[in-house]
């Protein structure tokens, strides 16, 4: 197979999922769903989650569960808002980048020093970040002007995401760190005997994630222009959105590179939510749908293998009889 043809086939395989989702909703609501304008908005909404999910990519490959991204995005947004109102646009951008680095370091240090399972560490940190957000500078929430939210509007929102995507693509596919991430994720013991230090790899994986969440926080505030502190694990649903995109990317990884799979994943997830709105599903039920979709999606590979085996047996039995 030629290289061009190979890429074309993998692109088709990867795009099949969002296209199918689109067609289903389009058939149900041909007039309201999926007009070009609506798709453009969906694409913009998908960008913030894409940046988050890109940040989670290395952690997910290693097998680290991180439940803190949503709370970091909110916390960074609050910090950015404060700095914008005090010192202006560039201070806000700097605050976003620096606080992302800071949260990355906190997460990475907490995980490597405490040696507690990642789920426990990150849920604990999420509660801390959320609570801190609600007392930060009075806890009243922040807002910025529409002009200052330029990074949350087209074309900048797409450009920022594109840059983050290219950086991760290079890190994940073209650096020693990226190779080590895959090695540690698939078999830590072998990686260790090959001279790789899994703890160092995990530290940097958390750190990179934090940096991405910082940028995502900045983009999120720019897009919404107003933000209030979250509580009661309210940031979990956005974390789940990003995580689900990651799972879709894992599912597609046979055909499409993980990094591109994430983009397809976030877009698909946003299409589904928009579709559910279009057919008039209530917000609560939307969550039920999305949760069920996640479970089905993760379970699907297992079920598929079983069905395949079953079909093969029937086929074989027929051959023998013939």
């Amino acid at each position: 197979m030629g290289k061009t043809k190979k890429y074309a086939v993998s692109a088709l395989k990867g795009l099949a999922l969002p296209v199918v989702v689109y067609l289903i909703f389009k058939l149900i609501r041909p007039a309201t769903f999926g007009t070009p304008e609506a798709l453009y908005i969906i694409a913009q909404q998908a960008m913030m989650v894409t940046i988050m999910s890109l940040g989670m990519c290395c952690n997910m490959t290693i097998g680290i569960w991180d439940f803190s991204p949503g709370s970091i995005v909110t916390m960074v947004g609050l910090i950015c808002g404060y700095y914008f109102n005090q010192y202006g646009f560039w201070a806000m951008v700097a605050a976003g980048i620096l606080s992302g680095i800071l949260f990355g370091l906190i997460n990475a240090t907490a995980y490597t020093v405490l040696r507690v399972p990642s789920v426990v560490v990150t849920v604990g940190l999420m509660l801390i970040y959320e609570s801190y957000g609600s007392v930060y500078k009075g806890g009243k929430g922040v807002s910025i002007t529409r002009e200052a939210g330029i990074l949350g509007q087209a074309p900048w929102i797409f450009l920022v995401t594109l840059v983050m995507l290219i950086i991760l693509y290079v890190i994940y596919n073209k650096t020693k760190f990226g190779f080590n991430v895959k090695a540690v994720g698939n078999n830590e013991l072998i990686a260790k005997t090959a001279g790789i230090n899994p703890r160092v790899v995990k530290f940097f994986s958390f750190f990179i994630a934090g940096c991405y969440f910082g940028i995502a926080g900045l983009v999120n505030l720019s897009y919404t222009t107003a933000l209030s502190p979250a509580k009661n694990m309210g940031t979990m649903s956005v974390t789940f959105d990003a995580m689900m995109a990651g799972f879709i990317a894992i599912y597609l990884s046979g055909a499409v590179n993980r990094v591109f799979g994430i983009v397809i994943g976030t877009f698909t997830m946003k299409l589904i939510s928009a579709g559910l709105v279009a057919i008039g599903v209530e917000a609560t039920w939307q969550k039920v749908f999305v949760g069920a979709f996640l479970l089905f999606f993760i379970g699907f590979t297992q079920i598929k293998a079983q069905v395949n085996e079953w079909m093969n047996r029937i086929k074989r039995a027929k051959q023998v009889k013939a």
Partner: peptide, 27 residues
């Protein structure tokens, strides 16, 4: 054993990837 999800080449040079690093730090 070898590490699943990685290529034959990546497995052969596991932990020794730096020998293929160029000046920009890319493999």
């Amino acid at each position: 054993g070898t590490i699943d999800g990685m290529t034959v080449a990546a497995n052969i040079f596991l932990g020794k990837e730096d020998i293929f690093q160029n000046k920009a730090g890319l493999l």
